[in-house]
Design a protein around this nucleic acid. Sequence first.
DNA 1: ATAATTACCATACTTTAGTAGGAATCGGCA
DNA 2: TGCCGATTCCTACTAAAGTATGGTAATTAT
Lengths: 159, 159
Amino acid sequence: MAEQHGFWHKYRSTIVYGISLALLMFLLKWLELRFIIYDHSFEIYVGFIAFIFTGLGIWLALKLSKPKVETIIIEKQVIINADVDFTPNAALISQLDISSREMDVLNLMAKGHSNAEIARELFISLSTVKTHTGNLFVKLDVKRRTQAIEKAKRLQIIP
Amino acid sequence: MAEQHGFWHKYRSTIVYGISLALLMFLLKWLELRFIIYDHSFEIYVGFIAFIFTGLGIWLALKLSKPKVETIIIEKQVIINADVDFTPNAALISQLDISSREMDVLNLMAKGHSNAEIARELFISLSTVKTHTGNLFVKLDVKRRTQAIEKAKRLQIIP
DNA sequence: ATAATTACCATACTTTAGTAGGAATCGGCA
DNA sequence: TGCCGATTCCTACTAAAGTATGGTAATTAT
C-alpha cells in the first residue's frame, strides 16, 4: 500500500522493458543484416525472437505483478487454566444470599475437608459447621455436600 | 505440501505453452504466406511476434510463479471449559490401577450422586458401590469422597 | 428501642458414608 | 486346569454427614 515511490522507482520496469525492446530491435536488425537471415532460415530467426520475448514477458510479469502472498493463518490455542484467573460470580453469590462465612465453609468443603476439619480450621464448633453446611444446601438447593461442590463449581461460585 | 497432483495438473501450464507456441508458429507461417510479409514491412511482423510472445511470457510467469507463503500465527486465547475437550489421563489411571467400573463410580460420585443413587444407576448393590469407593480411596490415597473428587480432578482423571 | 440479621453453639436424632472381612462368579492366561 | 484380577455381593460395625429445633450474643436496620 506504499504509494511513496518516485517516478523512476514506479515505472522502472516499464522503462527497462522499453529500452530492452529498443536494444533488442536494434540487435535483431543488426543480426538480421549480418548473419541470421543470410545464413539461416527465417524460422530460426522467428523462434529466436519468440524465445527472447517470452523471457522478457516472464521477467516483466515477475517484476510488475504484485507478489502473490498466500496468507496462512494458524490459530494457536493458548490454554487458559480457568482457575488461574478465576473470579467468583459475586452477583450470583449475593443473589443466592450466601454469607461470607458460608463461603469459607464451602471453599474448604470443596477441597475435601471434613466438617470436623473445617471446624478446626475456622476455629468454630462442629455444630456451627453443620449449621452453615445445612444453610448452604438449602441456598444451593442440594441435598449433599458433593452436590453442593459440583453445583457451586458449575455456577462459578468457587474455582 | 500436497504432492498428489496428476501429470496434467502439474505440467498444465507448460503443455499449454507448448501447444500455444506450436499454434502460433503455424498461424504466423500462414499469415506470413498470406498477408503480412507481402503487404507490410518485415518490422511489423517481428513486432507482432514480439508482442504476442511477451504476452505469452507474462501469462506463463503469472501461472508458474509460486506464491510467497506468509504465515501468520495468531495466538488465540481459549478459556478451556475443562469439560469441552477433556481427555482423561489414561496413563495415570492405569498407573493407579483404577478399573473401568471404579471410573464409573468415580464419575457419578463427582456429579454429587450418593452411593445409593450410583448403585441404582449402575444396576449394582449398595455393597458393591461401597467396595468400589473403598478401593478408590485406597488407590487415590484419600479418606473421603470429597477428597477423592478433588484429587481426581486435580490429576485430570475426571473433568 | 425493637426487629432483623448474622454468626455462633447445642442436643438429639436419622441417614449416609466408610471400614473390615469374607465370599461367589467369571473371563483371561500360563 | 488352576491362578489372577475384576466384579459382584454380603454382614456388622463405626464414623461422618445431615436434619430439626432451639438458644445466645453482636451487629445493623428501621
